[in-house]
């Protein structure tokens, strides 16, 4: 293209940015930089301790190795308790999520019911499992019951939210068609709603089972049973070699859970 020497074409081109105004662009960058200064400054980060951290990390890993599996009975009890909590919680969560999910679908439920159901979902979703767990511990005492209830609440909130969104996304046409046959509400549910959302409901539930296995390892930190409780105890006693053994078991457990979930999902398809 070098041959036709036309000079009336511009030689400069500037990429139009998302924020076109240069001042606004610089302002945004300045704000971000300022935020980092403010946050880092206000956190009162102890740089001395930070620099010591590497040495302490080396120390810690030194004390962790080799992992101590000698108390395998305690370990196994914790792991199986976590798994049982996860299974039981997924089951109850799945069951309870159906009514809540139906009530939280705006195209199905009357307004007041819808608002209450959405309120339940928002509140339960907002609080971290560990906060819910500690409150259950205060009500029901230490042990796996509090942990299981925590996971039930978390599953309920997750599955019912997905369920409600799925129902809201159904095409109105298919719903109308079944309604037009003169079906009653229960029949309408069985014929119009359930067949369309069942596969996703099962899929989401299995994801939740997987997630419950992960979370069952952590609710024990506040005394709600499972392997987390054993881990917390070992950290408190500075039994770091046992801690590493527990951590390895947790990673293995999460791995198996993920694998298992993937296997069931492949069966469902």
């Amino acid at each position: 293209m070098s041959a036709p020497a036309t000079t009336d074409y511009p030689k400069i081109w500037k990429r139009p940015g998302l924020i076109t105004n240069l001042h606004v662009q610089r302002g945004v960058v300045a704000l971000v930089v300022l935020y980092f200064f403010w946050s880092i400054g206000s956190l009162d980060l102890d740089w001395h301790r930070f620099s010591q951290g590497f040495e302490r990390a080396g120390n810690l890993f030194g004390r962790m190795l080799p992992p101590d599996f000698s108390r395998w009975e305690l370990l196994l009890k914790g792991v199986s308790e976590s798994i049982q909590m996860a299974f039981a919680a997924s089951f109850f969560g799945m069951a309870l999520a159906v009514p809540v999910g139906l009530c939280a679908a705006s195209n199905l439920a009357p307004k007041p019911v819808y608002l209450v159901a959405r309120g339940i979902i928002v509140i339960t979703r907002t609080f971290h499992e560990v906060i819910i767990a500690i409150i259950f511990v205060k009500i029901f005492g230490f042990g796996p019951l509090a942990g299981m209830l925590t996971l039930v609440v978390a599953s309920l909130s997750f599955i019912s939210k997905m369920l409600a969104e799925d129902i809201e996304n159904l095409t109105p046409g298919s719903l109308e068609a079944v309604r037009a046959t003169g079906a009653s509400f229960p029949k309408f549910l069985v014929y119009a709603i359930i067949p369309q959302i069942l596969p996703r409901y099962l899929g989401v539930s299995i994801y939740r089972l997987d997630a419950n296995i992960r979370h069952s390892t952590v609710v024990g930190i506040v005394g709600a049973g499972g392997i987390g409780q054993v881990l917390q105890a070992s950290f408190n006693r500075y039994d770091y070699d046992f801690s590493l053994a527990i951590l390895i078991s947790i990673v293995a457990l999460v791995f198996i859970g993920e694998f298992f979930g993937a296997w069931i999902r492949s069966k469902l398809r």
């Binding site: 956190l43 980060l45 992960r214 390892t217 930190i221 990673v251």
Partner: peptide, 25 residues
């Protein structure tokens, strides 16, 4: 990536508190 994902934030917290001591770091 897999190791990072398999351990819960709170459990990572236990580990890093043991390393850096309690606090935001």
């Amino acid at each position: 990536l897999v190791t990072s994902r398999s351990v819960n934030t709170v459990v990572w917290g236990l580990l890093f508190v043991a390393i850096f001591g309690p606090g935001p770091i």
